[in-house]
Computed example of a mutant assay.
Amino acid sequence: MSGYFQPSYSAARKAFLRGVGADSRLSWQRTVQHPLHGAEGEKLAMDVAWLGPVNADKLLIVQSATHGVEGFAGSAIQSALLHQCEALPQGTALLLIHAMNPWGFSHKRRVDEAGIDLNRNFVDFNHRPENRGYEEIHSALIPQHWDQASLLQADQRLQDFREVYGAQIYEEAVSGGQYTHPAGLFYGGKAPSWSRVQLEQLAAELRLAERKQVAIIDVHTGLGDYTVGEVICDHPPGSLGVQWAKHWYGTAVTEPFLGTSSSVPKLGLIDFFWHQLLPDRCCFVTLEFGTGSTEDLFNVLRADHWLACQPFGSVSEDLKQQIHQQLLEHFCPAAEDWQQEVIRQGLLRVSQALAGLASL
């Protein structure tokens, strides 16, 4: 099953489009061209495929590469779904959105071309939220120099903050979303990103708000225990979305708002777009495949963002390659057991979501 993983964005896109073209369930297809080119000079796009009846009231949406470099796993699951080509439940359709953030997927970065974390971008920019904790530790997260002495000093500042405020507040400060430092971690932007605009237009064109029951699975990697596909549900506790999730996915469901998840509550999630579009008619979950500790996640991102801030030619090739490789290995481990578990669990969650929709 690990054979569905591809070595690059361009290879993943070709595999996805090849699968779409051969799928007898295909009813509608769209390529949304990105204005920039990829790391290999290739064209970039958000590719969308609708499988099953176009007027279906029940719909399952599977998204990949909301965080660009995490797209290898989501794309592999989507390709596996296309390869299976199983019949959909009556009155149910499947919408595949491949490469929500194609620039980040191609360039193997978590953010987009503007440094925006798409999964912090869904806020009202007339009333941008504040993250004072991030303000306090930004310069320690991305120190001016990437040498042992500078890193030791920066890490001590972060440890001091964590000891004063606790691990929960520390994680929320780092990863909860910030809107003041464009070069910083988990930056939500100052306006809707290209990807957000395309998603909003796509939802309007496909009349998604008119569907009666919708399940969304957004595939992510990098947070949580190795090989574990955590089903994270950011619907309000006790809401219908949570009830559906627990009924469909069972004990795999965790809730950041209740402190049962490896993820802390966050600002500007793509979840909130779907919650608002389909109040009491959707179940959105993040399928998060773990690869290591939260601290490892933060550290590979710190290095990546530091590198992106450096003038061209000022960093040795060895250090650049080391940072790139550590980032890629954290978000898409090369180990066959991890990749096989991604496909196995991904297909299982899709099957559970389709069965859940059929039971409503």
Score class of each variant (00 low, 15 high):
297 L>W: 04
236 P>I: 03
68 G>P: 13
281 R>H: 10
264 V>M: 14
21 G>P: 00
269 L>A: 15
358 A>N: 05
111 V>S: 00
191 A>D: 12
217 I>F: 07
56 A>M: 05
242 V>W: 11
140 A>M: 14
173 A>C: 13
190 K>Y: 10
289 F>S: 05
153 Q>W: 02
156 Q>W: 07
179 Y>Q: 04
128 R>M: 10
253 V>M: 11
203 A>P: 03
12 A>E: 11
251 T>K: 15
263 S>D: 05
210 E>M: 06
330 H>P: 00
56 A>D: 06
44 L>Q: 08
290 G>H: 03
68 G>A: 05
58 K>P: 00
330 H>M: 06
184 G>C: 10
144 Q>T: 13
294 T>R: 15
310 Q>H: 01
51 L>I: 04
50 W>R: 08
278 L>N: 06
85 C>G: 12
109 R>D: 00
275 H>D: 04
133 G>M: 13
136 E>D: 04
143 P>R: 04
92 T>L: 07
271 D>K: 12
74 G>K: 01
163 E>W: 06
215 A>W: 05
147 D>W: 03
310 Q>R: 13
249 Y>H: 14
161 F>P: 05
146 W>L: 15
114 A>D: 11
269 L>C: 11
156 Q>L: 13
107 H>C: 09
167 A>H: 02
54 V>H: 03
217 I>N: 01
152 L>F: 03
356 G>S: 08
119 N>Q: 08
256 P>Y: 09
212 K>V: 07
180 T>R: 04
133 G>E: 08
342 V>G: 13
331 F>Q: 02
317 E>T: 07
